[in-house]
Computed example of a mutant assay.
Amino acid sequence: MPSMTKTLYFLLSALVTAISVGLLGFAMSRKWSHTTMDCAPIGSDLFNGTAVIKMTLFNGMFHRDSCPSFGSTASFDVFPLMGKTGGTAVVLQVLTVGLLALCLLFSAVSILISLYNSVSNPYQTYLGPVGVYTCSSLSACLSVVVLIIYVLNLGVTNTPEDMVIIGYDVEVELRNKSLDMQVGYFLVIPYTVLSLAAVFMIYMYDHAAYTQRREQERPTEDAPKEIMMY
């Protein structure tokens, strides 16, 4: 049977990682962004209309007010519409979802490694702590990359403007874009923190195990010289 210390640390790592997976799965189903733009007909300087895009990772909703006609609402699928705006937007969106899927995969592997080591030989570890370090660290790093890519795709490029024009097939001028991130986006942050917490749990076990091994090697080193002579 494994020691109580080993079981405790690996079970805590598995629990923390499982919570992070639940958070990320929930985040992927929630709204990620809310983009608002001022709108005016082509050639007009009167930007008295607004266009709003509310998006999850896979679908979204248009809201228009005097852009260029009276208000209207329409839903859309993210990937097909981004595909019409140009290659960069849809590539970044595919990359975002793909990296999130990899995060879930690495977290699942980290959970399996932690659970296995919590019941394995007390003097051996299988792919851990190195396995947990690798999988959980990759999950944390990839989730940070996701946060950056998503903001770049909607905040830096003209993707939202192109989506409004192509989605409604209208010629309008759009300016003063305002991007507000929503709950789905922000839930990735605690996922990152929990992934790093899993690494910290196993580091604490690894440090404790190393300290114990050093203490077991010390009796001979610390023995009185008179005893060692015999």
Rank of each mutant, 00 (worst) to 15 (best):
L95Q: 11
I189F: 09
T73I: 13
L15C: 09
V16R: 10
V170Y: 02
E171W: 04
C135A: 11
N176D: 13
M61K: 15
K177L: 11
L99S: 06
I166L: 13
D65V: 13
Y116Q: 14
L179Q: 12
F76G: 04
D65C: 08
S20L: 01
Y230F: 13
I42K: 13
S195A: 15
M163H: 02
A198K: 06
L196H: 05
T50N: 11
V144I: 14
A101I: 02
F58W: 08
S69W: 07
C103D: 13
F58C: 03
F10I: 01
Y9A: 05
V170N: 02
G22C: 10
E217V: 01
F58T: 05
Y9C: 09
V90E: 08
A18F: 05
Y205M: 14
A74G: 11
M204T: 12
S110W: 00
S118A: 14
G128A: 10
P129V: 00
D169H: 11
S139W: 01
G87W: 03
L174E: 08
F26E: 08
G83E: 09
L174D: 07
L81P: 08
I19Q: 03
I149K: 03
W32K: 09
G184Q: 00
V183P: 03
K225D: 15
Y205D: 15
E161D: 14
